[in-house]
Structure formats: structure tokens, C-alpha cells
Amino acid sequence: MMHESEKQKLLRKLQAARFAVHDASLYLDSHPTCQEGLKYFREKREDCEKLTKKYEETYGPLTASASCAEEYWDWVCTAFPWERGES
């Protein structure tokens, strides 16, 4: 196991929150009126939004459209996730 940097620790939380939103979406596709599922989805989505904002402000964009697009195109200045230690 590689030593986890602050960046990776934040990324782990973000990945967990994003996965929860994704998995809840799958569940809601077949249970669109489940109130408990909807509540869970809303909570996880809020976590996701906060963590995404924090991550992108500190470590750069997760999507091209989230690039700050000031002075240079930071979308191609940070590593892609298939490099070891970047996911």
C-alpha cells in the first residue's frame, strides 16, 4: 500500500461519495418512489458537491469544463488517473 498524501485522502472521500451517488442512482432507476432512497441520494449528492469543490480548488479540474481557464488551460496540466498514484 502506498503512503497516502493529503490529496489522495481527499480523493478517497470524493470517490466514496461519488460512488454512493452513482450506486443510489442505479437503485432509484428501479425504485423511483422510494423516499428513503431519495433522501440518501440527496445527502450523498450534497457531500459530493462539497468534496468536488474542495478537491478542484486545491488540486485542479476533474472535468474539462471545470477548468479555471485563467491564463492557461489547466485541464492538460495535471496528471491523468491511469498513472500510478493518481487514482
Binding site: 474539462a64 485541464w75 492538460v76 496528471a79 491523468f80
Partner: peptide, 16 residues
Amino acid sequence: QRYSAPCREVQGILTD
């Protein structure tokens, strides 16, 4: 192909 692209600009072009 993007995994063997040698720089981030080309990685970005292939991904996008």
C-alpha cells in the same frame, strides 16, 4: 490509444 500518449496535451486530445 491514450495510455501510450507521451504528454498530457495528447492524452487530453485522445480522452476528449
